[in-house]
Design a protein around this nucleic acid. Structure first.
Length: 332
DNA sequence: CTCCGGCCCCGCCAGG
DNA sequence: GCCCTGGCGGGGCCGG
């Protein structure tokens, strides 16, 4: 990927087909367009295209006139297929041959391939998901499985990152996937700033269930109902200290059993897994935005030793702390 | 590498 | 009957 700001901007082509989901089509422009370097310059160029540059009908009842045709897939660094809805393709899996060919060509050339929502049907029809893990909108999971049995579908996660092929669940999960990609390309600070510009929560992890409210859980806090949200805030303030399940539950004034149950309902993650993710996030931000020694970062993020941090960061991101810092320290 | 001890996760079920 | 709670226990995971 184009991580060096000196190189030309990372180019993203968004493919809209007939009956495109308008929200999906806007998501990449919005999120990637909000990713800026320290001087406020855009880090991505986002081009929307349609087959032949012809207008396509949006499912919402208007037409989309794109500036480009499929030729922009030829030199895009990333290709994103937006979701479509209520189209015959979702039942018969038939995608125009020239679209499949263009997508395959881009993938073979090494472009990063992504889909939002039912865009996964188009990637799958092009054979790009065979034998790989992927996800799509839960509503279409059964149809997807029937049409593309060779794909390892996980219908219950927000998005799947399989390296050069990334797929997301319905609509808003596309926001999460796009933020995830920005995070991977330019680091947490840039991604969080992009999220702030879009006024969405900084991130939801890919493994999270599709069946959790995006921000409605805060409502229960506002009305004072019991919830694990305060315990999460409390935990975030003391990530550098040991956080075991018992003390989290005690802080939420619940039994351990009820706390874990609620926690899972509200976040889609188990408490320990959530804490681990927060610690990695904390470490990333410290590596990106400070010059603290690795051991200090490790202590501050609750890993104890640099060795533990190295281990966790390696598991989560596949990079060592110093390498991570060197990659992202300059961007933001 | 394997083992070990501790913690965690979650299905299960009894009780309110 | 219903739903929610919370203790129990087995299987799993992680760090040493």
């Amino acid at each position: 990927m184009c991580k060096n700001p000196a190189m030309s901007r990372h180019r993203i082509a968004v493919l809209a087909l007939d009956q495109v989901v308008a929200f999906d089509l806007g998501t990449p422009s919005q999120v990637f367009g909000s990713a800026r370097d320290a001087d406020g310059r855009r880090l991505y160029e986002v081009l929307v295209c349609t087959p032949g540059g012809e207008p396509v009908r949006a499912a919402a009842g208007f037409s989309v006139v794109a500036d480009h045709g499929l030729e922009v897939l030829d030199d895009a660094d990333t290709v994103i297929v937006a979701g479509i809805t209520d189209a015959p393709m979702l039942r018969d899996g038939a995608v125009a041959p020239e679209v499949c060919a263009a997508l395959r060509k881009a993938a073979n050339r090494g472009a990063r391939m992504m889909s939002i929502c039912t865009g996964a049907f188009v990637l799958a029809a092009s054979g790009l998901l065979d034998g790989r893990p992927a996800t799509t909108h839960w509503y279409y999971a059964e149809s997807f499985r029937r049409l593309f049995p060779a794909v390892a579908l996980d219908p219950d996660v927000l998005f799947v990152d399989d390296g050069d092929v990334l797929t997301s669940a319905g609509v808003a999960a596309g926001v999460d996937l796009c933020l995830h990609v920005v995070r991977g390309d330019y680091g947490s600070a840039v991604a969080n700033q992009a999220a702030r510009r879009c006024v969405v929560a900084p991130w939801r992890a890919g493994g999270q269930s599709q069946f959790i409210p995006r921000s409605l859980s805060d409502v229960s806090v506002a009305i004072g109902a019991t919830s694990t949200a305060q315990a999460r805030d409390w935990a975030l303030e003391r990530l550098d200290q040991p956080l075991d399940l018992r003390s989290l539950a005690a802080h939420a004034q619940m039994s351990v059993r009820t706390f874990t149950r609620r926690f899972r309902e509200e976040t889609g993650l188990s408490p320990a897994r959530w804490v681990a993710l927060q610690r990695v996030e904390q470490a990333r931000q410290l590596l990106e935005t400070t010059d603290l020694p690795i051991d200090a970062v490790a202590r501050n993020a609750g890993f104890g030793t640099g060795a533990a941090l190295r281990q966790q960061l390696g598991n989560a991101l596949g990079v060592a702390p110093t390498a991570y810092r060197n990659t992202f320290r300059s961007t933001a």
